[in-house]
Nucleic acid binder design. Structure first.
Length: 783
DNA sequence: CAGTGAGCGAGCTTCCGCTTGACTT
């Protein structure tokens, strides 16, 4: 009989701990929560004070059976789940489900995964903290109430299969509101003036001093006038100051900061980061990747110190202890760090290697000395004008942590567009009253930047700041709002923008107009039409849930429950009563929401032009539906990809009704052009030919269409490699991925070694016969 | 694949947080 059974949450942890405990202890894992509210019939008994109806999660049945067996054979069961709200609940569910005898059950928590810490935990067992468990039950019940009562309202009032929740709905709101800020953004313009002056460096060689005028000019005329003044001006150093400055390393990684940096530096999506981190964790190369702690173990700090000394010398070491600020953060957990600091690199896939390297550098830097800088500020006065030029230089005196790692920022506007920003590293030696000769003064038209769109990672950052969601849910939440089609991750090309440049050089002033690309986006989150409609509906009708502080407010109450100051189902009752009233009221009284926008009237027919969400997505409508008999039905046309309810104009909408267009006849059959799901196409003789990107369906002519039809026929001819007279249904075709066999509407792969040209009918039949049955069910949800 | 946009009604959808695989493309 096994004396002791220790149950932890994750199997990797179990393995480590078993090694520390040695004989007499079996360590196993329960893989997180083993029970949850039942999914059907709400899962909460509203008649019995919100009593939760728990069921064993289907994917945990096997684990529970195994745990039962092990617990039966153990003298003492040690519940060693995490020390937070969820962990406490896991311990309690285990106790309930495994029907553990209180006499032989002990609750322990580790503050660190070391032999000493575990030994200490074993020596200091406690009982399950019922208050903490109740705080978790309140959290769980509240989330179920919100999710399962608001979602059905959406099914009725907007569209079936939609969802709402405490976390996801607020995440969508952030993106929708940001998009509207961008739509309504009015760019301002001004003129920035940069001067290049001539000086001498330490060795007496010519050196440039780049400076920016402290004033921006709102108009071209004012900028021009200033340059005219500069023509005859004398430029004098008014002031030189030098100040020391320092920069400190960033904290070690948490889930959220890892996702951000992997996104910025490696272009990983948040779920990709988590999947790669999971593999590193399972291979024992990094510590646990779902954490909000910045704490490093003593062991980690010491080995980092050694490694830094070994690689860079002792002066680069600075031991720093980081503490997580957020309340209820788990000091038991550690920051994400390499398990063995001495390993600079690891094997594995390229992605694993890159993510590991990032984690290693960040951890190292966190224990390294500050970088010391010297900042120089120079002011240059202009004899003919009150404005001054300033130049700022920054020289690294001691690199410190910068030797290994520098955190990136999301600031996409930071480093201008190559028009000079007035800054430079090294400032030539100068002193006050030096007179400089001017090489050039350039006024450049600049524009204020619209707010940036969210990336997956910057959205996680924002959610974390708002206290919404947990390390284990950031990635799934981001995935959910994309799967529900509330949000899309997209690239968008920028647009060309013209800007003026006025240059003073060699005493002459010249003007020019340049162009630049602006507003290009890569992997940014855009709200969809349905996302916007759902968001507006929820903000209008469920303000409390959609409030950015809703989570923070209920968290305070959960804390009160955890401290025994509040009774959990009383707290839920206070929330539920008014909330449920609201749900009923909205169901009864609110209008169906279709996001309808009336754009104006069609000048030709005088009919109303509008857009809305239809059964099959966003649709434009010409004319109004009427209840009268024999009244004309309105015309409909789907919006094209890239067009949105919020931004489409009357003209763009009217264009949609110009299709399908009749181009005339070819071979006595009608040729028409239209736009379908896969873009613009030509229809002729019941065949379809894609128009491609280069041809506009609104202007394309018959000649071009015929050309495309012929090209398609030629391509189709080439597509057929072989036909057999005996079996007309069987053909060898050339597809996108090479040759394949088509038979009775099904396609079959040809083995790589086989030359498709030489296939006989017998060969083909054999391939079809031996083709593996398509396994498994098709996933119901399509993205 | 190249459309749809009327209405009825059955049966379904949905939350957040803990954890890993087991699946297919």
């Amino acid at each position: 009989m096994q004396e002791n059974l220790v149950i932890v949450e994750s199997p990797a942890k179990a393995k480590t701990i078993e090694n520390f405990l040695g004989k007499g202890y079996t360590v196993t894992s329960c893989m997180g929560h083993i029970r949850d509210l039942q999914k059907k019939d709400f899962g909460i008994d509203l008649e019995k004070k919100y009593q939760p109806k728990y069921v064993i999660s289907p994917d945990k049945k096997k684990i529970v059976a195994e745990l039962k067996k092990l617990a039966k054979g153990a003298q003492t069961v040690w519940l060693a789940s995490d020390e937070d709200r969820e962990g406490e609940a896991i311990a309690w569910h285990l106790k309930e489900v495994l029907k553990l005898d209180p006499e032989r059950t002990k609750r322990i928590v580790f503050h660190e995964i070391t032999k000493e810490a575990i030994q200490r935990a074993i020596e200091n067992p406690r009982t399950i903290d019922e208050n903490l468990v109740n705080a978790q039950q309140a959290r769980r019940v509240l989330d179920r109430i919100v999710g399962f009562q608001v979602s059905p309202v959406l099914w009725k009032k907007v569209k079936p299969a939609l969802s709402a929740g405490r976390v996801q709905s607020v995440a969508v709101r952030l993106i929708v509101e940001r998009e509207r800020e961008i739509i309504n953004f009015k760019s301002e313009t001004w003129y920035r003036v940069n001067g290049i002056f001539l000086a001498k460096d330490e060795n007496g060689n010519p050196a440039e001093l780049k400076a920016e005028l402290s004033k921006r000019f709102p108009t071209k005329e004012e900028a021009y006038a200033f340059l005219e003044k500069c023509q005859s001006a004398e430029f004098t150093i008014a002031n030189v100051t030098k100040k020391p400055a320092k920069r400190s390393p960033a904290q070690p990684f948490t889930t959220s900061t890892l996702q951000q940096e992997a996104s910025r530096k490696l272009s990983f999506s948040v779920s990709q980061t988590m999947a790669v981190a999971q593999r590193l964790y399972e291979a024992g190369k990094i510590t646990y990747m779902r954490t909000d702690s910045v704490n490093l173990s003593n062991l980690a700090i010491n080995t980092a110190k050694q490694k830094i000394t070994e690689l860079h010398g002792e002066e680069y070491v600075k031991v720093r202890r980081y503490h997580t600020k957020s309340k209820g953060a788990q000091e038991a957990h550690e920051a994400i760090r390499p398990t063995y600091m001495e390993n600079e690199t690891v094997g594995g896939s390229a992605q694993e290697q890159r993510l590991y390297e990032l984690i290693w550098k960040r951890t190292m830097a966190s224990q390294m000395a500050d970088a010391k800088l010297e900042r120089t500020n120079v002011t240059i006065s202009v004899s003919t004008a009150p404005e001054v030029f300033t130049a700022t230089g920054e020289v690294i005196v001691f690199d410190g942590f910068l030797k290994v790692y520098m955190e990136s920022t999301d600031d996409e506007n930071g480093h201008g567009h190559g028009h000079g920003n007035g800054g430079q590293d090294i400032i030539p030696p100068l002193k006050a009253n030096d007179v400089l000769s001017m090489s050039s003064v350039v006024a450049t038209q600049r524009f204020s930047q619209r707010p940036p769109r969210f990336t997956e990672a910057s959205l996680v950052k924002k959610l974390e700041e708002l206290g919404i969601g947990r390390p284990s849910t950031y990635a799934p939440t981001i995935t959910t709002i994309q799967n529900r089609n509330y949000v899309e991750k997209e690239d968008r090309p920028g647009v060309e923008r013209k800007f003026d440049i006025i240059t003073l050089k060699n005493g002459n002033i010249s003007e020019a107009t340049n162009t630049e690309i602006t507003g290009a986006e890569k992997s940014k989150l855009f709200p969809t039409d349905i996302g916007m409609v759902v968001n507006d509906f929820l903000v209008e009708n469920f303000e409390q849930i959609m409030d950015f502080n809703f989570t923070a407010n209920v968290e305070k109450e959960f804390d009160d429950i955890a401290e025994g100051q509040k009774v959990w189902n009383e707290m839920i009752d206070k929330f539920y009563k008014p909330f449920h009233g609201q749900v009923e009221d909205v169901l009864k009284n609110s209008e169906r929401s279709k996001g309808e926008r009336i754009l104006g009237t069609d000048p030709k027919t005088g009919k109303q032009v509008s857009v809305k969400i239809g059964r099959f997505g966003p649709v434009a409508q010409l004319g109004e539906a009427s209840t009268e008999e024999d009244s004309e039905k309105p015309q409909f046309a789907s919006l094209r990809t890239g067009q949105h309810l919020e931004t489409i104009t009357l003209e763009e909408t009217l264009d949609l009704f110009k299709l399908p267009r009749d181009l005339g006849e070819y071979e006595n059959k009608k040729v028409t052009v239209s736009i379908g799901r896969f873009g613009p196409y030509i229809r002729h003789d019941n065949k379809f030919v894609s128009l491609g990107k280069e041809n506009d369906p609104f202007t394309v002519e018959l000649d071009k269409a015929v050309e495309l039809i012929e090209a398609k026929r030629e391509k189709d001819r080439k597509a057929v490699i072989k036909v057999f007279d005996e079996e007309p249904e069987l053909r060898v075709l050339n597809g996108r991925w090479g040759p394949y066999i088509s038979f009775q509407k099904k396609n079959y792969k040809i083995p790589k070694k086989v030359n498709a040209e030489e296939l006989t009918l017998e060969d083909c039949r054999k391939i079809i016969e031996e083709a593996p049955e398509p396994k498994g069910r098709r996933t119901r949800k399509k993205k």
